[in-house]
Simulated assay, not measured.
Amino acid sequence: MRNVPRLLINTPDIEIWPGGLLRARSNHDARLLSQASHVLRRKRDGRYLAVQLPHGLMPLVSRLQAEPGIEPAMVALDATLATPARVPPPEGELPLHQLQQRLDQLGLHSTRYASHTGLWLIAEPAHLHLAGFDRYRRPLWLTRGASRAWQRMQHTASLDGIALEAISGYRSHAYQLGIFERKLARGLDVAQILTVNAAPGYSEHHGGNALDISAPDAPAAEESFEHTAAFSWLQRRAGDFGFHMSYPRDNPHGIVYEPWHWCFRRTTP
């Protein structure tokens, strides 16, 4: 099997993962994943749909061709297989036309929400790059620019005796909707959730440029992170690498103070 670039191919309903990064859920999965160059994974629930093997595509669900979004996913997979690994994919974004349905499910009016918060809709990238692994040994996906900047920043911090850990990076619209659904099931209402989480489509994590950062001895996504040496270092140096804290205290978006949330902002075209 030829080398596969560490690249996530993103389509509206299905992600195409490079082989070797997904966890097996059974012995059968383990055998197939060990041979696969790519894995088609349903975004809304993480279900493995098919694997690309040396001899062709093997479905892992019945009626693969009836899966929502399978046609654009197959087009993207064919284009990936036909492109030499050394050729970087073009930058691009996914359309936002499916997002309104997700917002309707939450009873959120997108124009009113955007006007109230000052947040804007953020499209998902068509391609994401492997930036390493997070605290939980999950693949960390970011845009090309954010991936390179994060790796440089993490390395520079280590030279200064500071360990920076990623907690999470890219999240899909479907993942953000799942956060809301789980919290609604626990008895919270949408207004309460919106004080902590941006509405689906409005989180900086969707764009593949945002990182939640912590330190090895600090809890994840807690305000106490501001008292760590890692946070002090980020305050001094993160801007040198294009990262900025998005939600300081009393931010105009109505989101709680998040000293752990940093976003890469491209400084050159």
Rank of each mutant, 00 (worst) to 15 (best):
A114T: 08
P95N: 13
P95C: 10
A82K: 11
A114H: 13
V75G: 01
R148V: 01
I70R: 10
R86G: 02
D78L: 14
T117P: 08
L130G: 09
E71K: 13
L77F: 05
L119V: 07
G92Y: 03
Y113V: 06
Y136L: 13
Q101H: 10
A85I: 05
S110F: 06
Q154D: 07
H127V: 01
A126V: 07
T80H: 08
S147D: 07
R112I: 04
L130K: 14
E91M: 02
H116W: 05
G145Y: 02
T80F: 04
A82W: 07
A146E: 04
R137L: 13
G145V: 03
S147W: 00
R137P: 00
G92S: 06
Q154C: 04
W141M: 03
Q101V: 07
S147T: 06
R86M: 13
T83H: 00
I70G: 09
T143F: 04
G107A: 06
E93T: 09
H97L: 04
E71F: 01
A79Q: 15
L119D: 14
G92T: 03
M153Q: 10
L108G: 12
S147I: 02
L103F: 05
A123R: 13
Q105I: 04
Q105C: 07
S147Y: 03
H129Q: 11
R102D: 06
F133M: 00
A131H: 06
L142F: 03
A73K: 04
T117M: 00
P95I: 10
H109N: 15
M74F: 00
P125V: 05
Q151V: 01
L108A: 00
A73C: 01
A157Q: 11
R138Q: 15
F133S: 12
G118I: 12
R138L: 14
L94W: 05
L108V: 15
W150V: 10
H97T: 14
T156P: 01
L77R: 01
L103R: 11
M153W: 03
G69L: 05
L106I: 13
S147M: 08
L142I: 12
V87F: 00
G132R: 11
V87D: 08
G145L: 10
L108K: 02
P88S: 05
R86D: 10
G107V: 05
D104Y: 06
R148C: 07
L77Q: 10
Q98Y: 06
Y113F: 14
R102E: 08
W141K: 10
R102W: 05
L103N: 02
H129Y: 15
G145H: 11
P72Y: 08
P84W: 00
Q100V: 09
A85Y: 10
F133V: 14
I122L: 15
Y113I: 02
L119K: 08
Q98T: 10
A146M: 07
L142N: 11
Y113G: 01
P139D: 10
I122M: 13
A146H: 12
P84T: 02
H116Y: 06
H155A: 14
M153I: 05
W141T: 04
A146Q: 09
L140S: 09
I70E: 03
M153P: 03
